[in-house]
Design a protein around this nucleic acid. Structure first.
Lengths: 143, 143
DNA sequence: CTTTGACGTAACCATTTTTGTTACATTTGA
DNA sequence: TCAAATGTAACAAAAATGGTTACGTCAAAG
């Protein structure tokens, strides 16, 4: 599995913006977020651009500009974030079409697809059960 | 997400061997399996070697040799297969350690880890709910 | 005991994904 | 006009996956 950290970084960025806004600031810059995440500001801007396409954040340009949440942390679940940044499924079928002459080659795709759909649904149910407000609460509690 | 097909190919191979044995054959060759999967025999041998390490199959060498299941299809779940071939978790934490001076940077890791553990558990529960016997039944039913 | 068939595995290569980085155009507030 | 920030292209590095070739090793069959 790829084991990518995109969901982690996206959740981190949104949580950071949320806390920053809660402390009275209007917008957060990609530079500030990148410092907390410990990465490059462009990585943050690229990720936030995908979240903006999904309507989770909005951005301003120009001096004194930055990023702002469009919804409260409590209304944002990890599933919302996942949906915004993860296009493909966890498991893929064959790269090349299996032998159609073979019973297994012909029927294995649909059979596994049904299982994979269930897995995907379970994964989404789990992610939907946690809001970024939950995450922030855990973060502040640990401090 | 990587969207890899390793689980698909592994399940395909095991199902094929199971059906082949059920039809009275002793062992299946990587060449035969590769034909059904539509890939290279080396890809099959590499994957089955991992399944052998997990005790799911055994192999013979020499002329007339090949692969054989060590258990019945009904006792093999997709979770067994997944465990044998997938080392890492679905979601990863940060690649570089986040800023420890920042509350979010310091607490987001543990907070997300708890969620990811739940996701992983849900995924495994789903995979554990389907045996290769179930898969073969679906395959034969569709034919 | 030689031949043959099959696994075991190393060594490449191509492709894709992810991440980091630099660079620069664009926008906007002061 | 200047400074600050996003928007985005371009490139590189690294890792995972999959395909291919090549060759060593083993064991059954004759």
């Amino acid at each position: 599995m790829s084991a990518n950290s995109r969901l982690t970084v996206a959740a981190h960025a949104l949580t950071w913006i949320g806390l920053y806004q809660r402390r009275g600031h209007e917008v957060a810059t990609s530079e500030q977020i990148a410092t907390s995440v410990n990465t490059n500001p462009v990585v943050i801007r690229r990720l936030l651009a995908e979240l903006r396409k999904a309507g989770l954040v909005e951005s301003q340009r120009g001096a004194g500009a930055g990023w702002r949440l469009t919804r409260d942390l409590a209304s944002l679940t990890l599933l919302d974030v996942y949906r915004a940044i993860e296009p493909g499924p966890v498991f893929a079928l064959h790269r090349a079409v299996p032998d159609p002459e073979c019973v297994v080659g012909q029927g294995i795709g649909p059979a596994l697809s049904a299982v994979y759909d269930g897995v995907e649904a379970a994964l989404r149910r789990e992610l939907a059960g946690t809001t970024l407000e939950d995450v922030l609460r855990d973060v502040l509690k640990a401090a």
